[in-house]
Simulated assay, not measured.
Amino acid sequence: MALQAHLVELERKHKILESELHEALLHLSTDDMEIVELKRRKLMVKDEIERLRQAAEDTVH
Rank of each mutant, 00 (worst) to 15 (best):
L26N: 12
H61N: 15
E37W: 09
E11Q: 13
V8M: 05
K13P: 02
Q54G: 07
L21V: 12
E57T: 10
A56Q: 14
R40E: 10
Q4F: 14
L17E: 01
L26S: 06
M1E: 00
H14G: 00
L38V: 07
E18C: 08
L21A: 05
D47T: 04
L21S: 04
K42Y: 00
A56R: 15
R53K: 10
D47V: 03
T30K: 04
V60H: 15
I49T: 00
E18T: 15
S29N: 06
Q54R: 15
E37L: 09
L7M: 02
L3W: 10
L17W: 01
D32R: 11
T59N: 09
S29T: 12
M33K: 13
K13G: 02
S29Y: 12
E20D: 13
L10Q: 07
Q4Y: 15
A24P: 09
T30P: 05
A2D: 09
H61C: 15
L52Q: 01
H6G: 05
R41P: 00
Q4D: 09
K42P: 01
E48Q: 06
L21Q: 05
L26Y: 04
E23I: 11
L25T: 06
D47L: 13
A56K: 14
A56E: 15
V60Y: 14
A24H: 07
A5G: 08
R40M: 06
L26Q: 14
H61P: 04
D31L: 14
E37N: 11
E20A: 10
I16A: 06
V8P: 00
K15W: 02
V36D: 10
E23Q: 07
E48K: 07
V60D: 09
H14Q: 03
E18P: 02
D47Q: 10
E34L: 05
E34N: 07
E34A: 12
L10V: 05
R51C: 00
L7N: 02
V8W: 00
L10F: 13
E57N: 13
H6I: 13
I16V: 14
T30R: 02
M1W: 03
L7W: 04
L10C: 08
T30Y: 02
E18A: 14
T59P: 00
D58P: 02
A24S: 08
L26G: 13
K39T: 00
R41N: 00
L43T: 05
R40L: 08
M44V: 08
L26E: 03
E18R: 14
A56G: 11
L28Y: 08
S19K: 15
D31I: 03
R51H: 03
M33S: 13
Q4P: 05
L21I: 08
E57G: 07
K13R: 12
S29M: 09
L7C: 03
